[in-house]
């Protein structure tokens, strides 16, 4: 059915509505998610529609949100937790890493924790401290969690539905800078095939045969812009939207690198110990002889997230990406 374009944030909202409609065990919880609809309005109208029991304004405490969600999940609920901003997930770090991620293993697969954690994340919104961070590597390092990040409204819709339906805990890193970017969204019911695809598989957004640009979430549009810029000077870059950060679709990267021979990984998180480091290592292991140049990474500096007035120098934009591409081509 043809629909008017909607923003990425709205797409998440629609997915939550679809999921709550389909399954009474789906509940939304977090700070200010009810009457206000969340500080980004992602949960707008849900409380009116489903009631305060299923759209719960919690006390102000992130450990409380995740910790009680674990208990609810043990009772068969499917809590969708909103962490108000990336930089405020840390009070919940203990519950996420020591309890949520481990209980399935500890029970030999007996306990299922279908908990979704939505984190509005990333920079480029001119925010004050703690509101622009990219902590995904800290969670990717933890076995038992799945991590995804959408880069357009359709994926945002599908990933949200998939995360809610998934029997494993999923953290959805929602790029704040893309909340308002629009696209048409097929608002279908949850579909297992589609769910598995968006939780596991990368996708090629632009074909090219000289270099592969691999990115996820908010860095995908930056990679596309860089590819556009490079095309003007005759360089054909392939753009891969990884979608999932745990697991990472190494097979898709490998397949692309087999054609291009060069790889640049882009993310907003600091380069040091970031997802790019893991990708560079694995791809080097898997296709050493296919590579024409070392895998390069473009990302944040080894800095606490800088004041907003210079965040654009910290984050990988088209110029820094294109520069990395030139370096791999000249290697």
């Amino acid at each position: 059915m043809a629909q008017a374009p909607i923003a990425l944030g709205q797409a998440v909202n629609r997915a939550l509505e679809t999921a709550m409609e389909a399954d009474p065990k789906v509940i939304v919880m977090g700070e200010d998610v009810g009457a206000l609809g969340g500080v980004f309005r992602v949960t707008a109208e849900l409380k009116d529609r489903f009631g305060a029991d299923r759209v719960r304004d919690t006390p102000l405490g992130e450990a409380g949100i995740i910790g009680t969600a674990i208990g609810l999940a043990l009772r068969g609920y499917r809590p969708v937790c909103e962490i108000q901003f990336d930089g405020f997930v840390f009070p919940a770090f203990n519950q996420i890493t020591t309890q949520l991620a481990k209980l399935r293993s500890r029970s030999h697969g007996g306990l299922t924790l279908s908990v979704t954690i939505r984190i509005p994340y990333g920079g480029r919104i001119g925010a004050i401290e703690h509101h622009s961070e990219s902590p995904e590597a800290l969670f990717a390092h933890t076995a038992g969690l799945r991590l995804v990040s959408p880069s357009d409204p359709q994926d945002a819709y599908d990933m949200t539905l998939a995360a809610v339906a998934c029997p494993d805990p999923v953290i959805v890193f929602e790029p704040k800078s893309l909340y308002w970017s629009k696209g048409t969204v097929n608002q279908a019911e949850a579909d297992p095939g589609r769910a598995s695809e968006v939780l596991n598989r990368a996708r090629v957004l632009r074909r090219g045969d000289q270099v592969t640009l691999a990115a996820y979430g908010p860095s995908v549009p930056q990679a596309l812009r860089a590819a556009e810029q490079l095309a003007q000077t005759g360089t054909a870059a392939e753009v891969l939207d990884l979608r999932s950060i745990s697991p990472i679709d190494f097979a898709a990267i490998e397949e692309s690198v087999a054609r291009t021979g060069r790889l640049v990984v882009i993310h907003e998180a600091p380069v040091f110990f970031g997802a790019g480091a893991e990708i560079a290592a694995r791809i080097t292991e898997r296709c050493f002889y296919l590579l024409e140049a070392p895998v390069l990474r473009v990302g944040g500096y080894h800095l606490p997230y800088p004041p907003a007035l210079i965040e654009h120098d910290h984050l990988p934009g088209p110029d820094r990406i294109a520069d990395a591409v030139r370096r791999t081509l000249e290697f």
Partner: peptide
């Protein structure tokens, strides 16, 4: 095999 309920390529 007991870390995730769903297939995970790294595992």
């Amino acid at each position: 095999s007991q870390v995730y309920a769903t297939p995970h390529s790294l595992i």
